[in-house]
Design a binder for these strands. Sequence first.
DNA 1: TTTGACCTTGACGCCCAGGTCAGCCTTTAG
DNA 2: CTAAAGGCTGACCTGGGCGTCAAGGTCAAA
Lengths: 146, 146
Amino acid sequence: MLIGELARASGVTVRALRYYEQQGLLQPERSSNGYRQYDGRAVTKVRNIQLLLSNGFTAQDVRGFLPCLDDGEVALGPACPPSVEAVSRKVAALDERIAELSAVRDRLVEALIGNATPPRPGTIARHPAYSRPVHDQRLQAPVERA
Amino acid sequence: MLIGELARASGVTVRALRYYEQQGLLQPERSSNGYRQYDGRAVTKVRNIQLLLSNGFTAQDVRGFLPCLDDGEVALGPACPPSVEAVSRKVAALDERIAELSAVRDRLVEALIGNATPPRPGTIARHPAYSRPVHDQRLQAPVERA
DNA sequence: TTTGACCTTGACGCCCAGGTCAGCCTTTAG
DNA sequence: CTAAAGGCTGACCTGGGCGTCAAGGTCAAA
């Protein structure tokens, strides 16, 4: 697929795609006329890249994540100890970030509910409508449709 | 407390504090000599500001969050319907962001564990060491110690 | 009284993630 | 053959979140 199609499919701009490539996040093939050629997996990959970038990670951070987000074919996991360690660190970083945001969320919910209830750590009046959401949507798994 | 002390206490730079003020996120008192004077709650507030900024929110976004992060004295909650709605939207935005990051996290963990296990949505081989962390640290509640 | 730490307001600079424009080439449709 | 649509590179611009001087005021200790 060409760059414009990928842009539409993944919801980012053409400019952003070229920028990602310049940052080493994408390596599309080139057809004889010089046009970039992406395969179907790029859609998922680009969505994931954008997702990380829009959540406060830098392009360099994302470069670190990429080998594992790429897809199942990549040699990773227990067979590749150094990268396992690296990825573990990434997971830890993500956990930290998620915990931070969750904390802010909870604080907001507290503000919403406990009007006259000052934030007393320990026993917090919780409204059922604002209990923890599910957060279990799996990340875009590669959808080979091209 | 003076700006330098707040900076040390909250872990941000003096420059950042002045920037936050310029962006309308902080309104410290001024003593007769023109020095900024912060109270104890500022430490918490600043931490929360920095937390949001470093997680992809803009200063404008943070302005929207502030009234509820401020602390218990502020009139909010059911007594203040428009802001309740606004805050609800913020909570939703946070939930979305948390879900996104959680998804990335899970994908990474999958890469870590399921070496020869391609990402099959539904049944995913999970390693106990990489099950969901707790994420239940409450946000910095105001600690009046000054 | 002088030194040093800390404060003030500008103002310019930097990085990052793109936006935008210019000038040109290629492919498809009429 | 020509126009429209899409692609290419290069270059400059932008906005957000600060870093970093510059030039000076304030205050406590020596």
